[in-house]
Write a protein that binds this DNA or RNA. Structure first.
Lengths: 224, 224
DNA sequence: TTTTAAATAATAGTATTACTATCACATAAA
DNA sequence: TTTATGTGATAGTAATACTATTATTTAAAA
């Protein structure tokens, strides 16, 4: 017996649910591998089609364009992190403890989790670090936001901000701190890998542990 | 009499110094206006050429491609912020005071500064907020970093981190805090404008002042 | 088991993007 | 006044980002 989890981002992101067919699952699986390997700009539906022995036109039946595919993947990641946070903090009452677990959940998410067969969570995390912000830094952000394409991230931010407010109800910036934990974590991991002069994270001991420690330190200082 | 400032990003970013000719200056001026208005992805050299009554081929004599043009603009911005910080903190000795001025300098940079005629600093700031991270979130970041294309940002981060270390020599993350001040500022301004559920910045009183206050609050808490 | 519907593959085609190359002309420095 | 140098005009190419059409396979319904 195995328990199946299905993570379902907003329906408007795709033309046809990719997680329900062989081809759709291949699109998800190999787009993650290819975006991670070659980067988002040089990733194309044509190359993906070739990789999975399909055609461009077939992929276009699932996703309108590669931007929406990226947004789908990033949403999938946010949903997955939300799921991890939920199960990891279940039955934990102390909010400080909760926030520590939250931080561990998203920083180490890719390291110590089984997950879903067709999603390489570790590579998806790399994509979120390297390309994630491109999912919302576009001229269409307002239109897409009104369609609910960022709901997953907003829900996640809200649940983290609730914990922050529980720790210190007088703290004026719970949402900012919540989103900044995510953005800062991704940024500093990226810097440690590519622009080390911009960070104190060395990457030697495994940047992930260092980042986790750092985020906990920041949180402690800010909420004391 | 007027004093002329010339801001000069790394030479490798362009094929021919754009600030030395009419056409080059037009490229800078109108690329800022057009990227701000239409966004980076739908900005092309062809459209720019049309706008300034020149040709694609002529623009390519200045910049290899639009990515390097963006990197040039972002570098220009960093150099400009560095310059502002330098003149604004001159003769200030107290490092806490210095850091406040630094924060004011880059958050309000575009608001209260004369600057250089062919650069609309306010719109350039918008570009840095909306598109800036695309300048380094690419697969070529390591190669470009080795050519010194990010030196301006690194120097800026170093000078801010020095002030942070002066305030509290025991603080373990001066570089991380320095870069996070920039990234967080840009991010939260972007969120306030487009994804308000992700931030506590309202944008009502002018998000810039709110952000400045918030950054000062964070710094105070973290360095006390 | 056959009919029918749905999904995919194969192929072709278009507009735009991201360039490169060549040549002619204007302008300005030697 | 020669000679660079910069710019414009024009053309062309390969790749990208799609759309459309038809044929074929696969799966569900009768």
């Amino acid at each position: 017996m195995s328990i199946e989890i299905k993570i379902s981002p907003n329906e408007g992101l795709y033309l046809k649910e990719p997680q329900d067919s062989k081809l759709g699952i291949n699109i998800i699986k190999y787009s993650i591998l290819m975006i991670d390997e070659y980067g988002f700009e040089s990733f194309t539906f044509k190359k993906l089609a070739k990789e999975i022995n399909s055609t461009e036109a077939s992929i276009y039946r699932y996703f309108e364009n590669k931007h929406l595919l990226l947004l789908f993947l990033v949403n999938w990641y946010w949903e997955w992190v939300s799921y991890l946070i939920e199960i990891n903090t279940r039955n934990i009452n102390d909010p400080r403890n909760k926030l520590r677990i939250i931080i561990h959940s998203f920083v180490s998410a890719s390291k110590d989790n089984p997950g879903i067969v067709y999603v390489n969570e570790s590579k998806l995390h790399n994509i979120v670090i390297s390309e994630g912000m491109k999912a919302y830094h576009t001229k269409e952000v307002d239109k897409e936001n009104s369609k609910g394409f960022f709901k997953s991230y907003k829900d996640l931010a809200r649940s983290v901000s609730d914990v922050i407010s529980e720790i210190n109800p007088n703290f004026k910036y719970p949402f900012t701190l919540a989103t900044n934990l995510f953005e800062m974590s991704n940024n500093q991991i990226f810097f440690a890998k590519h622009l080390p002069r911009l960070t104190d994270i060395s990457g030697d001991t495994g940047e992930v542990n260092e980042v986790e420690e750092m985020l906990n330190y920041f949180v402690e200082k800010l909420l004391e």
